[in-house]
Design a protein around this nucleic acid. Structure first.
Lengths: 353, 353
DNA sequence: GCTTAGCACTCAAAGTTGCGGAGTGCTAAG
DNA sequence: CTTAGCACTCCGCAACTTTGAGTGCTAAGC
């Protein structure tokens, strides 16, 4: 059986309508659409064929049709009309993003919240290094009796620090020796290279400050590891309750309980080698708990060798056109924002001085 | 009308039973309790009086009674039996807490999750300074052409840093001058004291590095402000769905939408001058959206001049005894954990060296 | 040969009715 | 003061009916 243009048109209309109403769509409703110039009987025949072809489903005899997974898939890939963002929408996204984002993890929380708000669906956001973070430079600062501040500059323009307290008193000189040793031996190493042998080697060379070494090595290795891994945030789970398919609390509960960071952690991974926007329709989903939901996600650029990702989770019947449009715009705006030189106040270097 | 011992006993039984079953409690059910040596008729009379006294309510004639707000209040204050945690419970709380908590905000998220899990209710956690955070010492590190790392030691043993990039090239010497200036003028100041006048004064003294000053001043002031403010985290909102009172999605949605950080931000403030565990029953609640829910909260000690708070939000019919017991135990364990010297690895300073 | 009007048929959703039972308040007796 | 007894109320449930949206099929029309 062939998928004629008219069948496509009918299918598109069915999906569109179902997305709007969340109710099975009948032949009459389709026939009454402005640019549908056939009677309900004709539509009925087309819908019957679309059903045998697997694009539509019938909840029970004498009900309208709803899209099947294959129907959504075709709709997303070929049929759906581009959704054009209104000025209002682009503007509200932009003003939302504009506030300066500070640390990456805070930023992710915020982005997830914003995306969730913009789509009225649960949203996730994640950031991951391209991997290969190393320490670029170590600096030790004397901070009073028994206290030392360790400052580590990482590749990718990040700086971290830790206050270390020891029941040993050290001299400025000792710290200088140690930091020289650290810079000589521990820069440019991957986290796996922080072996016990390295530890003893550094301690041997460290002189009076050897007691500091284990703390420093552990902290650095730990930090590199955590920097290499993926951070993510989830927000707006409750928005699912607004969707008619989750009027049944039991269903809602089942899905929502699988909307946490652990359960969703494979989504960012899926995007690694993808480009553009990806849509997972219902049963294509990875986590089995999400069998009845769809996922839309897309990538953005954080700079500093980091890769960001935002996505939403919603009922299979979601407004793919609108959601993908908003998501893409979001990703674009975020990329732009991070591309801007981060120093906000290019010093208005006052005339005085 | 007087609140006799027998009335109290009846009231306690009604609340206990209602907490367990979430159904209106009838006189017969009470009369059949093991240590209730009166007939249902007598109980009926008592219940009728408790109702006119405002401790109980009747959803409609010929239904059982449910506790009114005043009933819960009396129950919480006087009647409820102590809940003794089982070994299992204390143990699972302890193992949960044991993992080392890193930064304060991550810690809060984790704690909120744990509390939510332990009580099966939405939970919040917050931390706030006692206020009065100031910068203790500034340090500038030269980090290659046009890059400088600013390290600020705060009172209360915290260290923060920022990488600053400028299209101006600076010498080591310039940085030394500037850090001396910063340490001389900007230590010990409250965030309000970072005025434009201060900025110009520091810039005048800063010499070649004056271009850095605005960035540094802004960043420091901003950081002090954010350190002084309250951090909080909310977790487990969806757990409400497990409660029978929220089988109705509309109700659930209304309450859950008010379970975010903003709406709950006055709760931590309420604890500032309170000690022990505080219970807000239904209509006593601050936010009007929470009129039909209760809040239980308690404080814990983070050390470093910080004050922590954990709490849960749940249906007015919640198991106050169990919840307060678990919450208190949690707070206690957390306080203990933070009291321990934080440096985990008192260097096992190997013999070599 | 495609399109469409017409019709009999199906089935979920919504409304109707009628019980059974849990619970109450009151009264009168112990 | 306590309790057995009784009439009364009202919710919840289940069985039944009605309604109407929607279908598939057939036969007539362009």
């Amino acid at each position: 059986m062939e998928l004629t243009e008219r069948k496509k048109k009918v299918l598109r209309s069915v999906v569109d309508l179902y997305i709007r109403t969340a109710e099975p769509v009948g032949s009459k409703a389709i026939a009454e659409l402005p640019d549908m110039h056939y009677s309900s009987a004709t539509i009925r025949n087309e819908m019957a064929e679309l059903t045998t072809m697997g694009y539509l489903e019938q909840p029970h005899t004498s009900a309208g049709r709803i899209p099947a997974a294959a129907g959504y898939r075709l709709y997303v890939d070929e049929l759906m009309a581009d959704y054009r963002l209104s000025m209002d929408e682009t503007q509200s996204i932009n003003t939302a993003i504009e506030e300066k984002m500070q640390r990456v993890d805070k930023m992710l929380e915020k982005v997830a919240k914003l995306v969730s708000q913009a789509t009225d669906l649960p949203a996730i956001s994640a950031a991951s290094r391209h991997s290969g973070v190393t320490a670029k430079r170590f600096e030790l600062i004397f901070a009073g009796e028994g206290s030392v501040i360790l400052v580590v500059m990482l590749s990718h323009e990040q700086v971290i620090n830790k206050l270390i307290k020891l029941p040993v008193s050290l001299q400025q000189g000792d710290l200088q020796v140690l930091s020289a040793v650290l810079n000589a031996t521990m820069t440019g190493l991957a986290p796996e290279e922080f072996t016990p042998e390295l530890l003893t080697r550094v301690m041997d060379a460290a002189g009076n400050a050897a007691a500091l070494v284990p703390v420093i090595v552990d902290f650095t290795a730990e930090t590199l590891r955590s920097q290499g891994s993926t951070n993510m945030a989830v927000a707006g789970q409750m928005r699912l309750l607004g969707q008619p398919e989750y009027r049944d609390v039991d269903k809602a509960q089942k899905v929502m309980s699988s909307l946490d960071e652990e359960a969703l952690s494979n989504l960012p991974a899926m995007m690694q080698n993808q480009n553009g926007t990806k849509v997972l329709v219902g049963p294509e989903n990875v986590a089995s708990e999400l069998k009845d939901t769809s996922v839309v996600m897309t990538k953005f650029d954080i700079g500093d060798g980091m890769q960001g990702m935002i996505g939403v989770v919603g009922p299979t019947r979601m407004d793919y056109a609108k959601v993908t449009a908003r998501l893409s715009y979001f990703a674009e705006s975020l990329s732009k924002m991070f591309a801007k030189p981060e120093t906000p106040a290019l010093p208005e270097a006052k005339e005085e001085q």
